[in-house]
Design a protein around this nucleic acid. Structure first.
Length: 280
RNA sequence: CUUUUAUUGAGC
């Protein structure tokens, strides 16, 4: 079953949905029934592509065929409902299916906090953030990242920074995503000095920047007439063994061109061509 | 590393 599931997941990721279904009928023929993981793979696809109705049907089907949904199933379904902007339905789902079985965990809370933030209901997000502590669910780096991003996006910059500091005090280890969120929002607000401080902090804490980190910084520096600094980061990233992608080049080149630094832009362009990267 | 959550345009 594991092998089949791995195949199904792989085909699905690469978009060969037909092949994935063929494997399912093949495994059935060979007397191997799909298990909860098989269902979860398909459920996840439905939820990610907004096919919530199909996801709901699939959940019913799995219950009927005696396969009990697990916390992955429920959380995926919850995410699907939230993404479809069916928040009320999502709450009903939590109350009816998840709380009774003890399926509410840190992932469920994170999904809900994100949904609140995206619906610009930051106060509800903060409320849940506080309540989860009482329920014995400790916020993790994802929780903080989600919440901080939500706070910035509605303009609560000070609160976002406070919560970031609170997280550091609570000994939660920030990861690269969390730093990316901080950097993106600080740059967007024009707080480059602070952003670069945070960037140094992440290096000090030995959190390795990734391509998103660099692309974020290069984008915003280039947009703010600081293309030379962006170019410096472009060198740093290669020194760290991170290969620039087409976004990196697009950001860097437009930043340089905006400042009239055409010959530097051209050099970057040549480097890009040498590496076989095409702007899309 | 068989399956679930936040981050790399902008505004609204």
């Amino acid at each position: 079953v594991c092998t089949y599931n791995a195949l199904i997941s792989g085909f699905w990721r690469s978009g060969s949905i037909g092949k994935a279904f063929k494997i399912i009928s093949f495994m059935r023929k060979n007397g191997c029934e799909p298990d909860v993981v098989t269902y979860n793979i398909i459920l996840n696809h439905y939820c990610d592509t907004g096919m919530v109705k199909d996801a709901e049907d699939l959940m019913k089907k799995m219950e009927m065929s005696g396969v009990n949904p697990d916390r992955y199933s429920y959380n995926q379904m919850l995410k699907g409902l939230c993404k479809a902007h069916q928040l009320d339905k999502a709450f009903a789902f939590v109350a009816d299916h998840m709380e009774v079985g003890g399926f509410c965990d840190i992932v469920s809370c994170n999904i809900l906090i994100d949904a609140f933030c995206k619906a610009r209901k930051v106060n509800s997000a903060l409320k849940l953030f506080k309540e989860m502590g009482y329920k014995g669910i400790q916020p993790d780096a994802v929780t903080y990242g989600t919440l901080i991003n939500g706070l910035y996006s509605v303009g609560y910059h000070n609160l976002a920074e406070e919560i970031f500091e609170q997280m550091l005090k609570a000994q939660i280890v920030p990861n690269v995503n969390l730093y990316n969120i901080m950097l993106h929002n600080l740059c967007k607000a024009g707080h480059f000095k602070r952003a670069l401080e945070i960037f140094s902090q992440m290096i000090q804490k030995e959190v390795s920047p990734d391509i998103i980190t660099f692309n974020t910084l290069i984008y915003w520096l280039g947009k703010s007439s600081r293309a030379i600094e962006a170019l410096g980061l472009f060198r740093d990233m290669r020194a760290r063994g991170i290969e620039p992608d087409s976004l990196t080049f697009r950001y860097l080149i437009s930043g340089l061109l905006e400042e009239g630094k055409a010959s530097l832009a051209y050099e970057v362009w040549e480097y890009m061509m040498e590496n076989g990267i095409i702007l899309d």
